[in-house]
Amino acid sequence: MHEGAIIHSIFETAKTIKEKENLKEISKIKIIVGQMHQVVEEIMFMYFDFMKKEYEGFENSELKIENINIKILCNHCGKTSEINEPVFVCPHCGSMETEIIAGNELHIASLEGMQNS
């Protein structure tokens, strides 16, 4: 269950941003998760609610997860395709010369909160 380690990293990073941006209370943390990362959302939310009590100013925050589907670019025919299975073969020409152009993301997208006056 790497979800716990991911949530811990989110809070550690968000804490630094909160201080830098002079935010008092965080209401929302938006993250982007590519389909390549096999995270279980229910476990992410469970860890988030558990850990937020440990971080000052995050006690009332919520986690918002945006999922990104896997997209590949074929270096043979040049077409991009969204794939639903982890088979990185171009569905147009059958080439294996593909690269992932979306779906690898594991990012904090934004923080919302009240700014100190």
Binding site: T13, L23, L106, H107, A109, S110, L111
Partner: peptide, 13 residues
């Protein structure tokens, strides 16, 4: 105090 959204786009790991 006012609500503010900070765009981050930082790798979690």
């Amino acid at each position: 105090m006012e609500e503010k959204e900070i765009k981050v786009m930082k790798k979690i790991l």
